[in-house]
Computed example of a mutant assay.
Amino acid sequence: MVDYFVSNIREIKMDRVPVNGSKNAFIQWLVTKENGSNYAVRKFTLLKDGIIPMHIHKYQETVVVTKGKCKVCVSDKVYELKEGDYIFINSNVKHAIINESDQLEFFCIIDYPDDMSIITLNEDCNKK
């Protein structure tokens, strides 16, 4: 555990998003429990036609869009988010994110419940 640390996003490894069925979607873990934090801050990048399909998990999350625009399907609703918009999604609420720009970037802050598993749902995001 550290008292603090300083880094740069460009120094953080970019991995593919681990939700089954994701396409052109990448994640970087910036602040984690390994740093002594009770929450995680992650940066997502979705390239053109990028998608994180409908899924659920036990952690809560707040998504803050910093570049581009997207559709967020949450529960049975569809929202259009753009740079500066954010959404809170509680635990066990189904959701998906679809990039609608050349490149979508957003930060996602989550808590750490005992179960961090992700369940991909066999449901399409309503693209109205």
Rank of each mutant, 00 (worst) to 15 (best):
D85G: 05
K43H: 14
D124C: 00
R16D: 14
L47C: 07
E100N: 10
D85A: 04
T66R: 08
S91D: 13
A40C: 09
Y4E: 09
E100V: 02
N99V: 06
D115C: 10
V17P: 00
N122S: 08
Q28F: 12
W29A: 12
Q60D: 15
D115Q: 11
F44K: 05
K69M: 07
Y4C: 07
L47I: 06
I118V: 15
Y39N: 08
D111T: 11
C125T: 13
N90C: 02
V17F: 08
V65C: 03
K43T: 04
S75C: 02
L30R: 12
F107N: 04
M54N: 04
N122P: 00
V72N: 03
K67T: 12
S101K: 07
F88R: 11
Y86R: 05
V78K: 11
T45L: 13
T32C: 08
L81T: 06
I98K: 09
R10D: 14
A96M: 06
E11P: 00
A96Q: 05
V63H: 01
H95C: 01
Y59G: 03
F5W: 10
I118F: 04
C108V: 13
I119V: 14
I119S: 11
T120C: 01
E34L: 12
I109C: 02
E11I: 02
Q60L: 04
I9P: 00
D49Y: 07
L46S: 11
Y79Q: 07
V31C: 06
E11L: 11
Y59V: 03
C108S: 13
V74C: 08
L81Y: 04
V2M: 07
V78T: 15
R16F: 09
Y39H: 13
E100Y: 08
N92Y: 12
N8P: 01
S37F: 10
M54P: 01
K23W: 06
Y86C: 08
S91G: 15
A25Y: 09
K23R: 15
I52H: 04
S91E: 14
